Simulated assay, not measured.
Amino acid sequence: MAIESVPLLDRARAAVLAEAEYERFADLVRSLDDDWTRRTDCPAWDVRAMVAHVLGAMESHVSPRELVHQLRAGGRAAGDRPLIDGITEVQVAERAHLSTSRLVERLTATAPRAARARRRLPAPLRRIPLKQDVGGVMETWTMGYLYDVIYTRDTWMHRTDIARATGRPLVLTADHDGRVVADVAAEWARRHGRPFRLRLTGPAGGTYVAGDGEEITLDAVEFCRILSGRGSGTGLLAQPVPF
């Protein structure tokens, strides 16, 4: 497939992906047993902290008051760092007192509501600018990009993190995970702007082409892990993509 043929995620399609990803994440979390203290590919977080972060994000979607609180508290926590770094710290810290069973209960109850709420984000909020560091370059995102794209990628990658940390199966299908990966590949291509032939293997994989350039064959999940900074790559694989 020509990489330019991958369509941008519109709001409706983004909402479908968000709903499915939240459901799969909740299913994985409900399967956890004595896995909560296992370390993940995010060095500062064990499985419990990672679930608390995802839950905190979900709860900010369903409650405008919680969203405002996280924006304000996250700004104070971030200091000179990007706002999103402070927000994630607040999400984890403010849920540290919850038992694992309570985390599961709240996540299960919140996930479907959060997916619906993300789709209904009002236009004025969608235009709010956010500063974020990507590969050492400070970018300006919009809240709409964060809600439509990044929160789903973030949850998807954390589902991968937890599956890797615990040995639980990672559910992957072409219609859902393949679409998430295709969107990542398309943004990666836009960011580096160079020709390539990319063959991603596995259930979420596909073949993407832009001209006649560097040839890359890689597992689709590993491709995303590298671009997210969880692995390392050379050549075009050194181009980061935000998750």
Score class of each variant (00 low, 15 high):
Met143Val: 15
Asp212Gly: 11
Leu130Cys: 03
Glu139Leu: 14
Ala117Pro: 09
Asp161Gln: 03
Arg190Asp: 15
Asp35Cys: 05
Thr234Gly: 09
Trp188Asn: 10
Gly136Ala: 10
Arg191Gly: 07
Cys42Ile: 12
Gly231Asn: 06
Ser101Val: 14
Val209His: 01
Phe243Ile: 02
Ala26Cys: 15
Arg126Pro: 01
Gly233Arg: 01
Trp156Lys: 12
Arg102Trp: 04
Thr160Gln: 11
Val241Leu: 08
Arg190Met: 11
Gln70Ile: 04
Gly206Asp: 02
Arg159Pro: 01
Glu66Pro: 09
Tyr145Arg: 08
Ala111Tyr: 10
Gly206Met: 09
Thr142Pro: 01
Leu130Thr: 03
Val149Trp: 04
Asp35Gly: 14
Ala204Lys: 02
Trp45Lys: 08
Trp45Val: 06
Leu98Trp: 00
Ala117Glu: 15
Val90Gly: 07
Met1Ser: 03
Leu32Pro: 05
Ile128Ala: 00
Val16Met: 12
Glu139Ser: 09
Glu23Met: 06
Val184Asn: 07
Arg81Tyr: 15
Arg168Tyr: 12
Val47Ser: 01
Thr166Arg: 13
Val209Leu: 00
Glu21Leu: 11
Ile84Tyr: 04
Thr234Asn: 13
Gln91Asp: 06
Ile162Trp: 12
Arg126Met: 04
Gly178Cys: 06
Asp161Tyr: 14
Asp183Leu: 09
Pro203Cys: 03
Lys131Leu: 04
Asp177Cys: 07
Val29Gln: 00
Leu125Val: 04
Gln239Glu: 13
Glu21Tyr: 11
Thr140Lys: 05
Ser5Trp: 07
Glu19Asn: 08
Glu214Met: 10
Val47His: 13
Asp212His: 04
Met1Ile: 11
Trp188Pro: 10
Ile3Cys: 10
Met50Thr: 11
Arg95Asn: 09
His69Ala: 03
Leu67His: 15
Ile87Phe: 12
Leu9Glu: 10
Asp80Thr: 12
Ser228Cys: 08
Ser228Lys: 14
Thr173Pro: 08
Thr140Cys: 01
Arg81Asn: 02
Asp80Pro: 09
Phe196Pro: 10
Ile128Val: 05
His97Arg: 13
Asp148Trp: 00
Trp188Thr: 10
Leu236Asp: 04
Val104Pro: 01
Gly231Tyr: 10
Thr217Gln: 07
Met58Cys: 02
Leu237Arg: 02
Arg65Trp: 12
Pro124Met: 00
Val137Ala: 06
Arg164Cys: 03
Gly74Lys: 05
Ala73Ile: 02
Ala114Met: 08
Val16Trp: 11
Glu4Trp: 15
Phe243Gln: 02
Val134Phe: 15
